[in-house]
Write a protein that binds this DNA or RNA. Structure first.
Lengths: 293, 293
DNA sequence: ATAATTAGTCCGGTATTTCAGACAAGATGC
DNA sequence: GCATCTTGTCTGAAATACCGGACTAATTAT
């Protein structure tokens, strides 16, 4: 089965750390020919399904986090211009996309909002989780996040920012390498070491500041998280943060979400202990089943 | 240009008041043949694009407001079973859909949540609107809604329910005939009378209790709304509600959203006046441009 | 037990959609 | 002013995605 997620976004094969955040892949006509050589695995005249184009388009918009012109989308997702215009117009008509301003920019539309709303409100479980998120934020005044996996990356699904000046929470929906996060360790506790090794793109072990997390350490962390049923990291993705995460288990006992606090790294130990206790209590209260034996 | 929205959902041609909320269109094989006659306008072997199927599928899920099995989706959107399975699997892989439980049910997935979040947070305007919604709800304790158009229907885009026992707010995303609502009158103020006549499906003038709104009255209401710059209705969609709506204008001076209160019909006049003042003040504060001259 | 319905997968042919490229008009650069 | 790039639309042709239908299991009804 052909995976739809294109190599552009998720360099599974050769992770040249080419994580897409800016429109870097501007393969214009000339460049495509000169650097041709047909990068092994992708034929030149590759024809794709409309559905797959749609998925790639939406994913690209999400990663870009800002309105884009149809032409730029075409370059980003590596699709013919004519096709892209066609698809964009279809999605506009369905209100899944919306024009922004008067320069031909498009972004997500009303329909997406409603679909997302349906996702997060139709099942009682998610609603209770959001209430807990609100509660934790209100009671503690700290930054709280709901996290989960998306493919082989970690993503914040929702968050409540601390009202204070300490605001480093990553944006909702931005994909982050799993080893950068405390939650990531919990979210992999259901995997064997081999599965983990095969799952994480090698480039994801390099932190934003250049440090490299030894794979063995990461695997050990996962073991610790499994034993403790929570996970903590300090100064990993950001130098000044202390993160703590607690698991929410789905039907199969598997960890599907985590709740986590993002604290200033100089938070005192007793305050941390207090917050951790609160976090774990709420998270287990939200789990649909206990820890697998 | 072929509109993607299928007749199943929006009975434009012959509005037999067949608004779809329950899976009523279960045209099983036999019935399809007996009742055949090829309902004019739709050929039997009609082949459609994958994209269009996707749009119809998502729209059907939204209207149904509950997880569905692949087979039922196929019936609902009138698509071949094999195609539907194929599409559902593609969307599952992209996490735009998600399996629910263990009976092959599917519903919106994580990706949709993120797309929707992106829609509602990326532009500062919408964020400010949500803050206003929260503020109005907190200050007044009443039910507040953000509304807009979706195609030729009205839809609640977000809401804050009153904490009290009075809870009749319609669900976010449910499509409602425009003439049933106060907001609907405001949202059509940019149209000429002829445009309105062509826009509203005739069946939409019939209220849920069977009463019929004369088209002339409705057109007059729109005129009043245009003049007053707000709109009120009582006991229209529900017998016991008093609705008031105030416009939020987009870039072109056109009304793109409305804020509205849904009150118990016995709310006193002075309280109503107070609430209306507050509502109009907040709404105009959110508009990007003034009333068109 | 037998029949009938449903769930999920698979396959070959063809109606359709995607694709490449052309084109005009606008924008931008020098 | 002329060259270059971009935007948006259109068209013909070919690759293929969608469709119908077949098939197996599982489930339910009679």
């Amino acid at each position: 089965m052909l995976s739809v997620i294109p190599e552009v976004f998720k360099p599974l094969e050769r992770p040249d750390t080419a994580i897409l955040t800016e429109p870097i892949c501007m393969t214009d006509g000339t460049l495509e020919l000169t650097a041709g050589e047909t990068p092994p695995g992708l034929r030149n005249g590759e024809r794709r399904r409309g559905i797959d184009r749609v998925i790639m388009l939406l994913e690209a918009l999400l990663q870009h986090r800002a309105p884009l012109k149809a032409g730029d989308i075409a370059k980003l997702i590596n699709a013919p211009r004519s096709t892209t215009y066609e698809i964009v117009n279809s999605l506009l008509e369905a209100e899944m996309l919306e024009t922004v301003g008067n320069d031909g920019l498009v972004y997500f539309g009303r329909a997406m909002h409603l679909f997302g709303w349906a996702y997060s409100h139709q099942n009682a479980h998610y609603r209770r989780i959001i209430e807990a998120l609100d509660g934790l934020a209100a009671e503690t005044g700290e930054t709280v996040q709901l996290c989960g996996l998306r493919g082989n990356k970690y993503a914040v699904l929702d968050c409540r920012d601390s009202p204070g000046p300490f605001r480093i929470s990553s944006d909702v929906g931005v994909e982050v390498p799993i080893p950068w996060t405390a939650s990531g360790r919990l979210l992999l506790t259901h995997m064997s070491e081999d599965e983990v090794r095969g799952f994480i793109p090698p480039g994801d072990f390099r932190l934003p500041d250049g440090r490299l997390i030894p794979q063995a350490d990461f695997l050990a962390d996962i073991g610790t998280a499994r034993r403790q049923d929570y996970s903590e990291t300090s100064s990993l993705a950001h130098r000044f943060t202390w993160c703590m995460a607690a698991p929410i288990r789905g039907n199969g006992g598997r960890i599907t979400f985590t709740l986590c606090f993002v604290l200033p790294v100089d938070t005192g130990p007793e305050r941390r202990a207090e917050l951790l206790g609160l976090l774990r209590e709420r998270a287990t209260g939200l789990s649909l089943s206990g820890r697998p034996t």
